[in-house]
Amino acid sequence: MKIKKNIAVSENGFLFDPNSGESYSLNKTGQLIVKLISEGKTESEIIEVVKEKYEVETTSLQRYLDDFIMMLQQMNLLEKEED
């Protein structure tokens, strides 16, 4: 899982995609997850880090993360994975 290049998230949670010209807003958790993805973390590592910081169970976190990653894919912000 890789964020497309040149995508940066400002500290306000504003994400600008220079590839498409689209802008997005993220909440704090969303911001953290995008940062972790861009650092090259795997899904299970992301879950570890988020759990470290926030009060949340693994199963519901997994569900939210799946949904969030689907959104990122939908918005074309992730590199296509090669299987």
Binding site: S10, N12, G13, F14, F16, S23, S25
Partner: peptide
Amino acid sequence: DIQEFEQLSIF
């Protein structure tokens, strides 16, 4: 600049 747009959109 996009910063102005960001400022208005986020805050």
